[in-house]
Design a binder for these strands. Structure first.
Lengths: 150, 150
DNA sequence: TTCCTTAATAAGAATTATTACTAATTATAG
DNA sequence: CTATAATTAGTAATAATTCTTATTAAGGAA
């Protein structure tokens, strides 16, 4: 399946999710979702706004923030846990972790190998009902390492 | 060792770290650090400010933010990865994870049992140089679960 | 001890990210 | 076709954090 087809499939999922929750399928919603879904950059709200503006010059900042929030409620996207001032979004729902570069703030996806499995700490469930688990690895990415040795 | 003694020990560590890095030991630094170190609440900057104000009524918001940042540089405290608008701080340097309640935003420490070990995803190091790893479990804490069934 | 350099602080203004509001307009989905 | 959810534009509010400038005080030197 090409990335184009994969994206279309995700858009279809979004449409269904909207209908299921009595939300209208609007071009803005589609575009904003596609922007997050097609990027591996884990964009922030501003980046999404800038990108969507190319296709829809009239889109408003407000719509982007509102839409990102509703896509999150639909569980079509989620926020990446980070220590940065801006929220970063991810539309890849497969369980995975993130490598966050402390220098350039780039966020990379880390997928586990087939024989690996995310380990939930034994006594985690003693604190309450678990919804999800997030793992971030912080460090300096290869790109930044390369630049600093120049 | 009492918690009082433990706190004093940590303060001594801070003083040494300051000297080592050519940073002055100021009452504000001590107080702000103690406030984070003695709490298990993972306070945000505002909470630290409010608490410190009781002892030092003239302390400024700015000093709290600046000091928290420099304590972080000294590796005496760190930020808890979260999706909340406010940064939360932790002075417990022992490796541990966090349970974050999505309802009340409380942050609980999760320590691994002696036979457990944090698993770093195999291909994490392929992205760059790893500095640290963070695990958050998101869910609804026992307190909130109890309140919602009432 | 006193002096001196300069790091650190206080106070409040400024900035940044995000959210909210208004009212008029658009366009989805039944 | 129609009811109304969603959007736009523009502005305002808010919340978290950072900057600016004058002042203070830590800690080394005399």
């Amino acid at each position: 399946m090409t990335s184009e087809q994969l994206l279309n499939k995700k858009v279809e999922e979004l449409k269904e999710a909207c209908k299921k929750h009595g939300m209208r399928v609007t071009p803005q919603r589609i575009e904003i979702f596609k922007e997050v879904a097609k990027s591996c950059k884990h964009p922030d709200a501003e980046a999404v706004y800038e990108a969507v503006k190319h296709k829809m010059p009239n889109v408003s900042v407000d719509t982007v923030y509102r839409t990102l929030a509703s896509l999150e409620e639909l569980n079509m996207i989620f926020r990446v846990d980070n220590q940065l001032p801006k929220a970063r979004f991810d539309a890849d729902l497969r369980p995975h972790s993130h490598f966050i570069c402390v220098q350039c703030n780039e966020v990379y996806d880390i997928f586990l190998e087939s024989d690996e499995k995310i380990q939930i700490p034994k006594n985690a469930s003693s604190f309450g009902e678990i919804k999800d688990i997030n793992i971030q690895i912080r460090g300096i990415c290869n790109k930044c390492l390369k630049n600093s040795t120049k």
